[in-house]
Amino acid sequence: MPYCTNCGRKLNDGEVCGCRDAAQQQVQPQQPYEQQPWGYPQNGQPYPNPPYPYPYPYPYPQIKPVAYDGTPLPPPPKPSKMWLLAIIIPFGLFFIALLVLFFAVYMPSARSYSNKAKQRNINSVASGIRSAANDTLNELDIEEEWVMGDYIISSNNALNVYVGFDEEKFYKKEEFHFADLDKYEYFIVVENGKPVYAAVSESWHDKKAYIGTYPLEYDKNTYYYAPVKYSAKGEKVFVKDKETLNDLYEYAREEFEKKLDMKMYKEER
């Protein structure tokens, strides 16, 4: 019995196998490729949007890690931030130490500078009041008021000692020469018609109030000119802490009485 030499099928007598004709019919000549614009088919129409099953963004399945026995593994530990503390804490302590050192050095010096500035200001006021009193006495002398002699005149007329002229006229003229006179309390020691000493403060009895005097003396301990008390012999007696203007007045009055006694004793001799 014959067989097809192409496909090996068994043929009857005189039968011709049609496998070659079928193979020739299936094979079609390949058409030449013509380059088209991107996204466009042969007919020039754009492709429709692809039917994606999921909208954008596309969901991805979350795969949880499991152990070999199928049990889920615990979540991984969060990264530690201890290294931040290891950097921040030393720098914070260093910054705090710098602040403490700064205030320890700066605050005393700033306080000292402020105290000296206030002391210089009240000393300037004392000098101004003394100058105003000198001009006032000169004007009263021209007006033929008896201003010669030794006496103490004060912002409180109850504390005046041996004043022999019109006190109200003195106060009005002195206020003209020193505009801020009503802000201060003061007393002035006058010798032979000339003011030789003045003490000024904002209060008579306040221990914290600054006291300014004229004249001043240089203090070697504080390195600036400090207020002094009135002395009959011209001694240098500095004003102590917590001493009030009233204390300086009582001290000056005692010294003033001593000086008058010494002067009278000399005249008698």
Score class of each variant (00 low, 15 high):
residue 7 C to T: 06
residue 238 F to S: 03
residue 116 K to A: 07
residue 102 F to S: 11
residue 238 F to M: 06
residue 183 K to D: 07
residue 101 L to A: 07
residue 161 V to K: 04
residue 5 T to V: 13
residue 144 E to V: 09
residue 13 D to V: 13
residue 209 A to T: 02
residue 173 K to A: 06
residue 3 Y to S: 10
residue 54 Y to A: 09
residue 180 D to C: 01
residue 151 Y to A: 03
residue 239 V to Q: 01
residue 216 L to A: 01
residue 226 A to W: 11
residue 166 D to L: 07
residue 218 Y to V: 06
residue 64 K to G: 14
residue 202 E to W: 02
residue 95 F to C: 09
residue 215 P to L: 05
residue 35 Q to T: 14
residue 247 D to H: 02
residue 63 I to N: 15
residue 170 F to H: 02
residue 84 L to V: 03
residue 90 P to L: 05
residue 98 L to N: 06
residue 79 P to K: 04
residue 144 E to S: 11
residue 112 S to Q: 15
residue 67 A to H: 15
residue 221 N to C: 03
residue 135 D to W: 06
residue 8 G to M: 14
residue 139 E to H: 13
residue 56 Y to A: 13
residue 166 D to E: 11
residue 115 N to M: 07
residue 224 Y to A: 04
residue 241 D to K: 09
residue 259 K to Q: 12
residue 38 W to M: 12
residue 240 K to A: 06
residue 102 F to V: 13
residue 104 A to S: 14
residue 209 A to F: 03
residue 50 P to N: 08
residue 55 P to K: 15
residue 94 F to W: 14
residue 22 A to C: 07
residue 146 W to H: 11
residue 164 G to M: 14
residue 55 P to I: 05
residue 200 V to G: 00
residue 71 T to P: 10
residue 176 F to H: 09
residue 171 Y to P: 00
residue 88 I to N: 00
residue 214 Y to L: 02
residue 53 P to C: 06
residue 197 Y to M: 04
residue 54 Y to E: 13
residue 113 Y to R: 08
residue 105 V to A: 13
residue 17 C to L: 10
residue 225 Y to C: 06
residue 206 D to W: 00
residue 245 L to H: 00
residue 257 E to A: 04
residue 5 T to A: 14
residue 100 V to N: 13
residue 96 I to L: 10
residue 233 K to W: 07
residue 202 E to M: 09
residue 25 Q to S: 11
residue 237 V to W: 04
residue 89 I to Y: 05
residue 106 Y to H: 08
residue 168 E to S: 11
residue 63 I to G: 07
residue 175 E to I: 04
residue 141 D to A: 07
residue 229 K to T: 05
residue 168 E to G: 05
residue 251 Y to F: 15
residue 202 E to T: 09
residue 43 N to Y: 09
residue 227 P to I: 02
residue 7 C to E: 08
residue 177 H to D: 05
residue 66 V to C: 13
residue 147 V to H: 00
residue 74 P to K: 09
residue 66 V to N: 14
residue 58 Y to A: 06
residue 178 F to N: 00
residue 72 P to H: 11
residue 269 R to G: 11
residue 212 G to L: 02
residue 249 Y to L: 06
residue 225 Y to H: 14
residue 55 P to Y: 09
residue 95 F to H: 07
residue 246 N to V: 01
residue 168 E to M: 06
residue 24 Q to P: 04
residue 18 G to M: 08
residue 36 Q to K: 14
residue 127 S to A: 11
residue 232 A to I: 03
residue 186 Y to I: 02
residue 217 E to R: 12
